[in-house]
């Protein structure tokens, strides 16, 4: 009975690990026609690094992700702070709302809503870079908020701020000398989460992006049919980005 349990546990772990390993192994192998791959090569990485189509898509994805993260920092940090200090029902209500929101409003609906809302004045954004950036920012917002809020709760920031106020520090001084330094790890964690979401995002992007905004995941979707070799390198790169973001998160949590 125990042996059977271990066997099933090992099977589950293999089931989780093999699909992640496959793009990496594929991207480094010259041929993979039989059970085992043959020959080591960097050609597929060279192919996407030399093709302006892939380079531009990669840079565009990076730019969009950074802009989405910046939007989240500007909007999300004050919100998480206010929701945290405003202990009563309103703060709790906001926290609840942001917990349910991504469940009730999937990326599919965010994408459709953006298409319908922002294709006409007063806010006509369709076809621009901004509709993609804001779509990614909206998708990441609940997760960014949650991460920063958890960081605040772990640090007793409220207590520190109260102490600073009691010693006569004004709002600006309290923000500058107490809140910001304590908040940096939490904000970095939230930013990594939002960054990882944006870099891999396909669903909203494929709905709202115009012909001029082909991100890396959109290109990967095309390459899955047209150029499986290049696709392996793109998939591996996206996997590395996720791994780096998660490593960063683990590092921040350890501190």
């Amino acid at each position: 009975m125990r042996g059977l349990g271990w066997l099933f546990f090992a099977f589950l772990l293999l089931y989780l690990i093999l699909p992640m390993l496959a793009p990496v192994v594929y991207s480094f192998s010259r041929m993979w026609l039989d059970v085992l791959p043959q020959g080591f090569t960097l050609d597929w990485y060279a192919r996407i690094a030399r093709d302006p189509k892939y380079v531009e898509a990669g840079l565009l994805s990076l730019r969009i992700a950074l802009m989405a993260v910046a939007t989240n920092i500007v909007v999300g940090v004050p919100t998480a702070y206010a929701a945290y200090t405003w202990a009563g029902r309103a703060g709790e209500g906001l926290r609840r709302l942001l917990q349910v929101l991504p469940l009730l409003v999937p990326p599919l609906v965010v994408g459709l809503g953006f298409l319908l809302a922002f294709n006409r004045p007063p806010l006509s954004l369709s076809g621009t870079l901004w509709i993609v950036v804001l779509g990614h920012a909206a998708l990441g917002f609940p997760f960014f908020f949650r991460t920063v809020y958890a960081g605040l709760a772990g640090l007793e920031v409220g207590l520190l701020m109260e102490a600073a106020r009691a010693s006569g520090a004004g709002l600006w001084a309290r923000l500058r000398y107490v809140l910001v330094p304590n908040l940096v790890p939490a904000v970095l964690s939230g930013s990594l989460v939002a960054f990882a979401i944006s870099m891999g995002e396909f669903e909203i992007t494929s709905m709202v992006a115009g012909f001029g905004t082909i991100t890396l995941p959109l290109l990967l979707f095309q390459s899955l049919r047209e150029d499986f070799r290049a696709a392996s390198a793109v998939a591996a790169v996206l996997l590395y980005v996720t791994l780096l973001a998660l490593l960063g998160l683990t590092f921040l949590r350890r501190r």
Binding site: P19, A22, P23, Y26, A235, L238, T242, L246, T250
Partner: peptide
């Protein structure tokens, strides 16, 4: 940490991995 990877991975990377393993000519199918 390992379990956090599939949760945050792009769905298309997942699709790629499964095509390699279980696609028409996939490793497991062989």
């Amino acid at each position: 940490s390992l379990y956090a990877i599939p949760v945050s991975l792009s769905g298309l990377v997942v699709a790629f991995g499964f095509i390699v393993l279980l696609g028409r000519n996939g490793v497991l199918n062989q």
